[in-house]
Design a protein around this nucleic acid. Sequence first.
DNA 1: GTCTATACCACGATAGAC
DNA 2: GTCTATCGTGGTATAGAC
Lengths: 204, 204
Amino acid sequence: MAFASSPAGPEVAPPDGRQRILDEAAALFLERGYAATSLRHIAAAVGMKAGSLYYHFESKEALLGEILRQGIAVMVEAFEAAEESTRGEPARVRTEAHVRAHLAALFENGPYTAAHVTSFRTAPDSVVAAIVPERDAYEARWTALLAELQRSGELAAETPIGLARLILFGAMNASVEWFDPERGSLDDFASEITRQFWVGVSAR
Amino acid sequence: MAFASSPAGPEVAPPDGRQRILDEAAALFLERGYAATSLRHIAAAVGMKAGSLYYHFESKEALLGEILRQGIAVMVEAFEAAEESTRGEPARVRTEAHVRAHLAALFENGPYTAAHVTSFRTAPDSVVAAIVPERDAYEARWTALLAELQRSGELAAETPIGLARLILFGAMNASVEWFDPERGSLDDFASEITRQFWVGVSAR
DNA sequence: GTCTATACCACGATAGAC
DNA sequence: GTCTATCGTGGTATAGAC
């Protein structure tokens, strides 16, 4: 309804052409994996023939590269929004906001971030090499956040930041394998993962 | 040396035939993914031709199925060893032993468990269906362990067991993407992941 | 138990019409 | 911007010699 009754704005128009292909390809890469998804399959999902894809992308690898990059962009955007909305808040509140933002990137803002997380490890070397710097930059933001919380004395001084980030990322990213946003609340999930990360599971 | 100087026993002999193929295939599936690994590639790693693989396996999918099953078997064995060696110990000690056992399955007992973890999500439906019961059984053991620790009052009563298990599994399994057993100590890693799971990262 | 040879198919990619 | 048609390659799988 919003689309039919509102003037055609770039933010509500259904994606077409290039972006439409990326949307369908990201969803298929997420569901079946990059290597198992053929260009004919992607083209069929978009409603065109395989050869036509080459008007928009120079190769299947280039298509994957673009998806991986957009997956990072979505994460970075979510991170920055969490930064701004929680400046000056206590460490645990900020952490939960960032966890919620990362989960939103995985489950609420299109298939790009989830496709990135599931496809990165086995992506062709040349594709990986091109996006490693952007990935590192995102990870560095998290490391900086945790270091800041540690400096403020709210995060335990003995906790190794690098390992803590990897453990938290692991817990969050692995949820693409089992979390279904239709059946569970992302807010509740973000809250619980933050609670376990922050104070653990022991009775005290 | 152990091999050359000791009588040929089944436990030290290098694998041959069927198991040798499984070893190489599991390593390749782990490294490059199932769909991206061809039978010709596997055969070359073993030192034979692709057609010869069909003497040992009826299809590529059957080969994957066997690898996924062995991946579970390795986890189950490690779990049971941890059970027996820590009966009656405090909750945190038992938890750490089981975390260490799961990590050993991932990094020290061949590529089967790691290949399972990385290949399961995008494995063909028929292959997945056949091993789901065994997977569920392994997960049920962990759920039972955590429930027992909760009944004993050492694990917080308000912690949802199912979610705690998924978060812990996520943190452990995701480490196949970054942990290198040649560079880091698995004992230290198991200890730190258990500490974070158990008491969290907050300064208190 | 492994080989050679090959069938058959789907893949990524290109050329040129429209 | 999408189509049809096709190229060359490499995929899984099979048959039969050794």
